[in-house]
Nucleic acid binder design. Sequence first.
DNA 1: GTACGGTGCGCGAACGTTCGTTCATCAGCC
DNA 2: GGCTGATGAACGAACGTTCGCGCACCGTAC
Lengths: 355, 355
Amino acid sequence: MAHVSLKDVATRAGVSFQTAGKVLNGKGRVSAATRERIVAAAAALDYVPNALARDLLSRSTRTIGVIATDFANDALAQHLVGLEREARRHGLLTIIGSVDAAGPDAARYVHALIERRVDGIVTLAPAVEDNPRLGELLRGRVPTVSTHTVAGGGIPVVTPDNLRSAYLPTRHLASLGHRRIGTVTGLRHRRVTHVRVQGYRQALADADLPFDPEAVEEGDWNVVEGGWQATHRLLDRRPDLTGLYVHNDAMAIGALAALRERGRRVPDDCAVVGCDDLPIAAWTTPPLTTVRLPFVEVGETAVRLLLAEIDERTPEPRPITLPVEMVYRASSGGRRVDAPVDPAPPVTTAEAGTG
Amino acid sequence: MAHVSLKDVATRAGVSFQTAGKVLNGKGRVSAATRERIVAAAAALDYVPNALARDLLSRSTRTIGVIATDFANDALAQHLVGLEREARRHGLLTIIGSVDAAGPDAARYVHALIERRVDGIVTLAPAVEDNPRLGELLRGRVPTVSTHTVAGGGIPVVTPDNLRSAYLPTRHLASLGHRRIGTVTGLRHRRVTHVRVQGYRQALADADLPFDPEAVEEGDWNVVEGGWQATHRLLDRRPDLTGLYVHNDAMAIGALAALRERGRRVPDDCAVVGCDDLPIAAWTTPPLTTVRLPFVEVGETAVRLLLAEIDERTPEPRPITLPVEMVYRASSGGRRVDAPVDPAPPVTTAEAGTG
DNA sequence: GTACGGTGCGCGAACGTTCGTTCATCAGCC
DNA sequence: GGCTGATGAACGAACGTTCGCGCACCGTAC
């Protein structure tokens, strides 16, 4: 498996290695005869050019790095799919690495990426919101795009329209006639959670419904059980809720279980709307009304933004948000009296859609 | 963001770049005074060594490539988690790429990996079973380990113990007293499917139950709907089944839905056992008895095998299989009369456990 | 004062490319 | 037959490292 170099090809073809290089790159004027000899030699020796040497000279590796927390996470995995696909479309390779939140290996990994001279980095890591170290490591050193607001700022962000991912389902529930709508949120320290609570409140206000802080409960949205526990806590406090917006589908499955245990029928006694539109959402009992988030598109967009940043074309200053979409199923009673979705965002604030 | 080289550090410190290199690598004898100047210069300039140059010389990139079909697939995503973690533990970077089965970009991607001089490749791609091209591309050119038997052979394989992943649940159902046990299989052309049918038949035989070809139905196991459809087809033919082994949890969820639609209670009218132990398996209605497959461990083991192959230590000749484990939940009626699991494999054949 | 061992650095070479320049050869032309 | 211009191929240099060798210089010992 020892590799063959241009020099090897050249000696076999009886030419200088530079001439061999010219032929194999299709550049420079070479006679048909020698060209043929060189091509034959390259084929015979199974020559594969050494990208290390080329990149060393060209100062570009056509490689990007991905910093993620957990590839098995549904959303992140889909981000990765879109990201890698778009990267490959542009002829870029993708290096991945997972980092535990604030551990020392985050710094080590970033360092390794810079040593490899990646052209840019995409972070798929909620941890960058709280942990300022990662931002410091990246800012000004490598072109970077993040799918989460980076502590300290200065790094382009692309996310789903998180505000509407809460506004739409809440409005949907209100339009179905529900007056007491609760919500099971994601982790409190996450930015997306704040934005969603804001969207939820906005929809309540638009429907002339009061905001009840006791109708909001935080859950651990990494596990189904988090939604199950939070729903129980919420219903202990507010047993009269008839509508529930849960910040992700995993927790919504837990919520359905909790409601079932309490003998509350869905959607008749309590309507439930999730978020994410995971594949299983269509197969819960009852099937889950939810919000489709453009996870794959976020990954794709991140790469496009990164390429723009690398080429020093205007690095998008303000966060980019991608449209979300309601998916109506039985857990909310279907799309009965839902108002048409207006094309323009219902609200606009400085915080809108960033998360 | 222009990068700083040893030469830059050296001129700032007033030494030759080789001396700077010695200091920054901790090798060679250098006086404390100049050492300090060099370190200071490196820090001031934010020097990061160029791995391209180093790797060019050392002929090792400490990087491995991953060829996968779909990172959003539950099993593959977990493979990837284990793989990347183990790689990082050994100081290796991981390059990923997804390839559509037999498309031309598979060849392109492999080529790109070899150009980058990756130290080895792991394939997480069922497609290598059918498509001989990928095997040809890799064999003899790059150290490779696969999680799927590669068409043409010659490449080390590591998988869960697929035979037992079917034997154990079938025996479990038999031990619960079920006499008519059906199975919804994965895609027919996949090797794992054959091995599982073999394990299923073996368990039937060991329980003195007849094998009924009509009690076996293929499903598209990439989607829940595949299990739903297959179960309906199966029950149309054999309405009297009282036990069902479904080849993955996603399809098992579809099976539960199909049984519900037919008014058959689980587990009383028909017991169901899935396979994979996805996080949601504990939250279906009823919770799903299933087989835990060591997906993460498969990824880790693949990296260890690959490192052995790279170091030219005995490249494991025969396929490695990792132990699987029953997880008892309500969909089968729990672990009521299950026989103790014998430590040794119940059967051994040439096909055992490979898939 | 010469020989000697050790220390501290510089220097050349190599890894496999790409790029630009130089050089030899040859045909065509007055 | 000497000049021009084109063509084909060789050549030198550079990218940023690592490695080993060589060479000053200093202090010590005879």
